[in-house]
Write a protein that binds this DNA or RNA. Structure first.
Lengths: 160, 160
DNA sequence: CACGATTCAGTTGTGCACAACTCAATCGTG
DNA sequence: CACGATTGAGTTGTGCACAACTGAATCGTG
């Protein structure tokens, strides 16, 4: 049987080239499509993700957004500041915990949700996949991410 | 039957949140694993992709690398300059066409291939997938990327 | 209560991705 | 041959991702 251990190194280099690369390419293709779809909303794709989270939860501390998007403050702070400058969100130090900053959509930000309503369906249509395919792919990707996130860094070093 | 047109908008917003997001998360998880595996080689993940291409082809013009990685000169020029500074590649204006710059691995860059030999297998092992799963996932992602790359931008605008 | 540890947001610095642009070399058509 | 169009690499500017760090607020344990 063909397993990870029976394939020659050179085959593997090619295979690897393709799997990591396919993911890279698919992500960039997705980014391009979102960029186009979000252009008239004035949002980038990561900004859209942040707004999705806020539309769903109403308001959240920066940390809460970070947990849901798996992003740290180094990425979120400037992103949220840009959303604030654009007038879509409001940031306020939490009175209960002065360390925390609460973020919530402004009226304008909330109104944006209606404009964004069509986006997901258009994106889904652009993928050419039906619902079952999308769900299946999503499940595989989620499982993969969970698996990769739990990898022990020591297992990846060549000189173990 | 459940199709793209019969699902309520709000379901879709959630579903969308998950598919685009799953891809995003999987890519970032992959990046993290590669970052770790490539640390001792002194390469970033995109630099590794460029070296893979060069190891396979010996030498290529910047344009040729860009075609294979689907990256433009705006991304590649500084990346290749960093690889040159690191001593892994050499860049030379082509004598036949002065517009073109030929890139090829230095001796040190070629030697790096041996050090990188173990990387793909370790990455594959980290995914927890067997060869069939990897191939299947790769094919789906490639098909998705092709499909997304060929989308007409006009189909993505809300006010068509 | 006090004080070291932790938590949270933010900053800085590096690298990637991409759009829009420059500039020189080359091509193609009249 | 000449000259406008195209091509190839590079630059600039914006935004995202992440590591490493700062500084203030809060927590927890003695």
């Amino acid at each position: 049987m063909e397993t990870l251990d029976t394939v020659p190194d050179d085959d593997f280099l090619r295979l690897d080239h393709q799997i990591c690369f396919s993911l890279h390419a698919a992500t960039r293709a997705f980014n391009g499509v979102y960029r186009e779809a979000l252009r008239e909303l004035g949002l980038t794709y990561p900004q859209y993700l942040a707004m999705l989270v806020l539309w769903e939860h109403g308001e959240l501390p920066v940390k809460g957004i970070g947990e849901r998007l798996r992003l740290d403050s180094g990425t979120l702070s400037p992103l949220l500041k840009r959303l604030e400058t654009a007038g879509y969100v409001e940031r306020r130090r939490s009175p209960e915990d002065e360390r925390s900053v609460t973020v919530r959509p402004t009226a304008e930000g909330a109104a944006l949700k209606e404009k964004a309503r069509d986006v997901p369906r258009r994106i889904a249509a652009a993928t050419g996949l039906d619902l079952a395919d999308i769900r299946d792919l999503r499940e595989r990707l989620d499982a993969l991410a969970v698996r990769l996130d739990s990898v022990d860094p020591d297992d990846l070093n060549v000189c173990r």
